[in-house]
């Protein structure tokens, strides 16, 4: 039986792959954001796992709180851009973004 730390990182790898697969496969902009969220969740779990292993739990929590704040701002700005883009091009397809003209 493998130990707890390796088990954590095994699942972190799987969750990261799920998010990456979503971003690779989908053409919907909203799904891209969902994939980004899943990837950042797996990174969060990785940070806390390493922090618990080395005894630096306070530092890991400080990093995670900063990361969550940045994540929220990125998602809020991205979703508002998505809605704006939808109102202009009437599409959420990621291929509709290739006709940006100044």
């Amino acid at each position: 039986m493998i130990n707890s730390f390796s088990m954590d990182w095994y699942f972190i790898t799987l969750i990261f792959f799920a998010g990456m697969y979503c971003m690779l496969v989908s053409r919907n902009l909203l799904r891209q954001f969902i994939g980004l969220e899943i990837m950042s969740k797996s990174c969060l779990l990785g940070v806390i796992s390493v922090g618990a292993k080395t005894g630096n739990l306070a530092l890991a929590q400080a990093l995670i709180i900063t990361m969550i704040v940045i994540e929220v701002v990125v998602v809020a700005a991205g979703l508002s851009l998505l809605v704006k883009n939808y109102r202009i091009t009437n599409s959420v397809d990621i291929w509709s973004l290739n006709n940006l003209r100044g």
């Binding site: 954590d8 699942f11 799920a18 979503c22 899943i38």
Partner: peptide, 12 residues
């Protein structure tokens, strides 16, 4: 952790 992974797959 299994719950998180399963929910991630379901979300995708």
């Amino acid at each position: 952790l299994i719950l998180v992974a399963a929910a991630a797959v379901a979300a995708v």
